[in-house]
């Protein structure tokens, strides 16, 4: 498992994490509020995210590739193409019979796919340009409860350790998954394979529960009292606020453009 954050010295990296969190959320909300078929607005939303990705210097291939992650889910919207309202178009399939599709349904489907794609781009950009501790601090300043952030912080701290553990367990299992000499069948029954995997999960959870005992002891030895350490809150700088306001106004304008041109 690899962390998505990519250290770089770009302007996007340096923006206050709170501004990025709020802007990303606003961007996704307004993009999704835009009605279907608002192609000009989509082009500009995409351009905006694309330019931000460019100026973050993450490498555009990285962002585009990562953002295709939502693609498999597009299948869920595919039926729209065939079940949408009239007018119906026809795709000739080997002359006759031909496949009918709904034009409106197709527009809706394409709109959903584009929105999903550009939204993921925005999320990738946030995750790749903001260090996780900064994100946590931003959330705490945005009034997300401390207990919750403590849990997430601990989870992040041990996620990579434990996923290495899982990788080693999987490797150990693979190395014993063999075929006997002169035999062609192997694998055991499906039920048995699933149960073995369950055993691995059980062992993983027990080890983690016992690890949490040690983590607790270590936290106590460093003065943990059950209260999360007080975060010092810095106020947003004026230029950050201005940038955020300008960004949101631009988003509203794009949305209006979408409402006017969309169907």
């Amino acid at each position: 498992m690899r962390e998505l954050y990519t250290p770089n010295h770009s302007a996007v990296h340096r923006i206050d994490a709170r501004v990025k969190v709020i802007f990303t959320l606003a961007f996704i909300v307004f993009l999704n509020l835009t009605p279907s078929g608002a192609w000009p607005a989509y082009i500009l939303f995409f351009t905006w995210m694309f330019s931000l990705s460019l100026s973050s210097r993450l490498g555009i291939a990285f962002v585009l590739k990562r953002s295709l992650l939502a693609l498999p889910f597009v299948l869920a919207a595919l039926p729209l193409v065939f079940t949408g309202p009239a007018p119906l178009g026809q795709i000739p399939v080997l002359n006759t019979p031909s496949l009918t599709y709904s034009v409106v349904g197709f527009y809706r489907f394409a709109s959903i796919a584009i929105k999903a794609w550009v939204s993921v781009m925005a999320a990738v950009l946030l995750a790749a340009t903001t260090r996780f501790p900064d994100l946590l601090t931003a959330f705490s300043q945005l009034k997300v409860p401390a207990l919750f952030l403590t849990i997430i912080g601990l989870m992040w701290r041990y996620l990579f350790v434990i996923s290495d553990e899982v990788t080693r367990m999987l490797i150990a299992r693979t190395s014993r998954s063999a075929t006997a000499p002169g035999s062609n069948r192997s694998g055991g029954s499906l039920f048995w394979r699933a149960r073995v995997t369950g055993g691995m999960a059980g062992s993983l959870f027990l080890r983690s529960i016992e690890r949490s005992d040690r983590v607790y002891a270590a936290m106590l030895s460093r003065g943990y009292t059950g209260q999360p350490a007080a975060q010092k809150t810095t106020r947003l700088q004026k230029k950050d606020l201005l940038a955020l306001a300008a960004g949101v106004i631009l988003l509203v304008l794009l949305w209006l453009l979408g409402v006017i041109t969309g169907g």
Partner: peptide, 28 residues
């Protein structure tokens, strides 16, 4: 036969018997 550094990564069954039986059982 690969024996790993941390046996906990290699042992994942409720009993020792089932763990030792994993290889032969997988072989069918």
């Amino acid at each position: 036969g690969l024996v790993f550094q941390n046996p906990d990564d290699q042992l994942f069954s409720p009993t020792v018997y089932e763990d030792v039986a994993y290889g032969p059982t997988y072989q069918g």
